[in-house]
Simulated assay, not measured.
Amino acid sequence: MTADEEPCAATEGVHMVEETLGELRAELGEAGVVLPSLRVDPVSWAARDVPPLVDLGRCNLATARQLVAALRERRS
């Protein structure tokens, strides 16, 4: 990986995390659930070798995506 590629990958990662948090917030809101401290865990975000944790009880990003899907399915 070149130095030119790293910012692009980092930007895509930030976008995916922000998008997932926004989707999760919206889906939880539709279900009447508000998690005021929903955020990316800053310690895990700093680690480059593992995906960041979503701080809502400390689940990983994949679990948060599954929760978004489950909430959407339930609403359907």
Rank of each mutant, 00 (worst) to 15 (best):
M1N: 14
D4P: 08
D4N: 14
E6H: 13
P7W: 00
C8V: 11
A9Y: 09
A9H: 10
A10T: 11
T11A: 15
E12L: 14
E12K: 06
H15C: 02
H15P: 01
M16G: 00
M16Y: 05
V17H: 03
E18K: 10
E19T: 00
T20Q: 00
L21M: 01
L21P: 00
G22K: 00
G22D: 01
G22Y: 00
E23H: 06
E23R: 04
R25K: 09
A26G: 09
E27K: 06
E27T: 08
L28M: 09
G29Q: 12
E30I: 05
E30D: 09
A31Q: 03
A31S: 07
L35E: 15
L35Y: 10
L38H: 03
L38F: 05
L38K: 02
R39T: 11
P42A: 09
P42W: 05
P42S: 06
V43K: 10
S44A: 03
A46N: 03
A46K: 03
A47P: 04
R48E: 09
R48M: 07
L53Q: 12
L53V: 15
L53D: 11
V54A: 07
V54C: 01
D55F: 08
D55G: 04
G57Q: 07
G57V: 04
R58S: 15
C59N: 12
A62W: 13
T63N: 10
A64E: 08
R65A: 07
R65S: 05
R65K: 10
Q66G: 14
L67P: 03
L67Q: 06
L67D: 05
A70N: 11
A70P: 08
L71E: 06
R72Y: 06
R72N: 03
E73K: 12
R75V: 01
R75L: 04
S76H: 11
